[in-house]
Every structure is written in structure tokens, then in C-alpha cells.
Design a protein around this nucleic acid. Structure first.
Lengths: 242, 242
DNA sequence: GACTTTTAATTGTCTGACAAATGAAAAAAT
DNA sequence: ATTTTTTCATTTGTCAGACAATTAAAAGTC
């Protein structure tokens, strides 16, 4: 019953929460300077090391940044999409690896989200997105490519597809889904035969996006999902046999 | 050029990164106990407060938990979907509020993702999801409901729709998109007329899911998106006029 | 006025200490 | 022998005080 006693937690956690709430509430705005560590220690009636632990917690979430020197201090950080991508990716990756999420479940989620982008991407794609997709397709056709490099290129291809939707919020959300899959994908060994099939589908996707044919793009993505899950099933079956 | 000197950051940040990498790499597994703070201080050749700051950074990301006492210490934490939801929601909320994301952009992303769930939800919905959706629809029809309570019920309705897809990864991803919108939605004042229209569309969605008609569900969601954006535009126009 | 030096403020790090919690071992009681 | 109580060692939580490193502004110098 005493599991989540609110006042039973660390002082540093309580202080971090108080400051975080102030930021979320808007009491502290972007680039505003927090009181110095010594002042915060006085306000919260704790020692400076305790305040510092609280500030480090917030820094870990990219909520503040610190700067040394006369005019230094802790400042409310503008959370950039870049920062948020990074957090999203580590969180998603750990979530999948620690919770025995099946490959099929993760894959289903990823392609469902990606299909959600397809109509927007088809409508709004610009030349640079198409160029990136074609370039990655070409890279994937090189025979000497390692499995890791193939996966990395695969991620880059799908990132371009998502970014073509020209919606940063969507790109942010998808970053987690696409990149978090990579460790799972890396378990698969891509034979020449399977690369050929993936390449065929990637080309179909790029063609559909270029032709602004959302329906064809959706179908190609669905086929790619089916094929990826089948590949993974074969790998797991082969592994179980040994 | 010296912007992101890797060895120029805080010691505590470096140590946190080293331990985080070890967790992501799998060198430290779930529930494994880290060395004590004193031992870590010796290993990394820093003082105990510095080690503690590093550990607090990791604790802020729910990567470790600590326990006092003889057999206590820091343990690698199993990142639960619950924890990940929470982080996702705060991050997404701050991202939207700090980056001048337009209502239309956020709304487009949210409904694109939600439409991605619709086919799965229609296929797999169970009695309890339908019951929750119907209950929230009923709540939304109560005349005395405040705007905040109406929004909260709206979130609960859409959560049920997403959860009906029976894919925890999808639910996790959507949590951010749906809940982060709430502060933006709270800016809207819902007139009796607009509530009526939303209620109509919610009912259409629930009916479609119950009938397992994914196409109808998709159409209702699209209509709801259009209507929501129109509502927001009117609110902003009225506010600009004053 | 332009340049250099000093100074004050602030974060980063260290040392050493004590309090609080907690399980395990030792001791005592039955 | 078993149960209960006590003691104890370990570990995190918190504090106080100190010094180093950094930085911009103020003061001084030419």
C-alpha cells in the first residue's frame, strides 16, 4: 500500500518534479534562467548537491541546459525535434528489447504507422525525398553490402518516405517506430534472394510515391510487411531447428 | 566547431552514457545490480557525488531504480509500457508547446496515426472496448459537462479506439499523439452545437467499429479531423478579431 | 577608443561526514 | 531445536564546506 507514497520519494525527485511541473505549466518559459543552485538550495531548504541531482534529472530529459560562468546557470531548454527523436528512439528500443515484444507485433505497428504516412507522402513528396529513396535503393543493390549496412540503408529509405509527408510531428512519432525496429531487423540475415525481393518492393514504393499513387504505395507497404514477417519467421524457425 | 566535443561534457553525463550504452547493448540485463556508488566511483575514478549525478540521470529515464539498505543498490529497471507512456506524453506535450506547431499540423498527425489503427481496431475490438466507447459517448452527451471534462472524455474515447487494435506498441506510440493534443484541444470552447456534431461522429465511429466496417471508421475519422480543424480555425479567428 | 587585467558569479568536482533503511548474522529466549 | 530479538555491516540519501574551471562584465591601462 505504501508503494507510491508521494512524499516518500527522494528530495531530488520531488524538486525535479516541482520544476518540471513549472515548465509544463508555463510558469518557466523557454530560455528563462532558473535561480542559481545556491538560491534553489535555499528556496527548497536542501543542500546544493541535492539541488544538483534534481537538475541533472531534468537535464537528462533535455528540459534544461546549463552553462558555466558569470552569466551562466540553468536555462529552460527548447525541446527540439532532434532531441525528442533521440529520446524516442532509445525509449522505444529498450521497450521492445525488455518486454519480449514479438517481431510480428512490432512489425505490425511499424507498418500500420508507415501506411498512415503514405497518402500524405504521395501527395507532398519533393524531388529531394525521391532522390534519397532512389539513392538508398541503389545502395541496397550493391552486392558487397553487409547486413548491418543494408539495414541502415533500409532505415534511411523509410525515413525519407516518412519525411516526405512534410509533417514534423509525424516524423517524430515514426522515428521511434522505424528506428526501434532496427535491432530486431539486424537479427535477420538477408540472402541475395530476399534482398532482391525487398528491392523490388522498395522500387514499387518509390514509383508509387513518384506517381503520387497512394493506393499503390499502400499495397506495396502491405506486401513488404507480409514479406518481412515471413522472413523473420523463417529465421526463427531455422534457429529453433539447431 | 567545439560544439559537441565528446570529451568536453560533464563527467556525470559521460558516465551516464557509458552505463546507458551498457544497458542498451545488453551487457547489463534487467534486474541486474550495478556496483555500489563507492565502487563505481573507484572504477570511473571520480567522486561519489559525480557518480550519483550520473545515476540520477539514468533514474530520470526510468533506466534504473535504487533501493537503500544492506542488499540495496541500483538495479537495471524493466522499462514498462506504463513508464514509456508517461515519458512519451510529457515529451510530446512539451514538443508541441515549445515549437509553435500549428494546430492543423498536430491534428493531421494525430488523425493519420489514428486512422492507421482503425482497420486493426475494427477487426479485433472486444466487448470492453465497445463498452468504454459507448460509455464515453454517453458522458459527452451530458449537458452540464465542463470543456475540460469533455476533452478528457474525448481522450478516453480515442484511447479505447486505439487499444482495441490490441497492439501494445501501437498504443504506446499513439499515447503521445492523442494525449499531447489535449492542451491544444483545451483551448477550444465546445458549444452545444459543436458537441452535437462531435457526438454524431463518435457514434458513427463506434458503430463502424462494432460492425467491423473499417472503411466507415476511416471516413468518420477523416470527417472528425476536418471538423476539428475547422473548429480550431474559428476559435483562432474569433480570438484575432478581439 | 581599444586593449588588457581583474573580479565576481556560477557551475563542476572533490572530501568527509552522518542519517536512514534494510537484510543478514548473532544472540537470546522459549 | 525453534523462534524471537538484537546487533551489525552495507548501501543509499543528505549535508557542509572547499577548491577548480569558466565566463562575462567591470576596472584599469595605453
Amino acid at each position: 500500500m505504501k508503494k507510491s507514497d508521494p512524499e516518500h520519494t527522494d528530495l531530488s525527485a520531488q524538486i525535479a518534479k516541482a520544476i518540471r511541473d513549472a515548465i509544463v505549466r508555463g510558469d518557466l518559459i523557454v530560455d528563462e534562467r532558473l535561480p542559481s543552485e545556491a538560491e534553489l538550495a535555499e528556496q527548497f531548504e536542501v543542500s546544493r548537491p541535492t539541488v544538483r541531482e534534481a537538475l541533472k534529472r531534468l537535464a537528462a530529459q533535455s528540459l534544461i541546459r546549463t552553462q558555466r560562468g558569470a552569466t551562466g546557470g540553468a536555462f529552460v531548454n527548447r525541446l527540439t525535434f532532434e532531441d525528442a527523436y533521440g529520446q524516442q528512439i532509445t525509449t522505444s528500443t529498450l521497450l521492445l528489447s525488455m518486454n519480449a515484444v514479438s517481431f510480428a507485433t512490432a512489425c505490425e505497428a511499424r507498418y500500420a504507422l508507415e501506411r498512415a504516412c503514405a497518402p500524405l507522402s504521395s501527395e507532398r513528396r519533393e524531388a529531394d525525398h525521391l532522390a534519397t529513396m532512389r539513392a538508398e535503393i541503389h545502395r541496397q543493390s550493391q552486392p558487397g553490402l553487409s547486413d548491418e549496412a543494408f539495414c541502415a540503408s533500409d532505415v534511411a529509405f523509410h525515413r525519407a518516405l516518412v519525411d516526405a509527408a512534410d509533417n514534423p510531428v509525424l516524423s517524430y512519432q515514426l522515428a521511434g517506430a522505424v528506428e526501434a525496429m532496427q535491432p530486431l531487423m539486424n537479427m535477420i540475415t538477408f540472402t541475395a534472394r530476399s534482398r532482391e525481393e525487398i528491392l523490388r518492393l522498395h522500387t514499387a514504393i518509390a514509383d508509387a510515391v513518384e506517381a503520387q499513387d497512394a493506393g499503390a504505395c499502400d499495397r506495396a507497404l502491405s506486401e513488404l510487411e507480409r514479406y518481412t514477417i515471413e522472413l523473420a519467421r523463417n529465421v526463427l524457425a531455422a534457429r529453433a531447428a539447431s
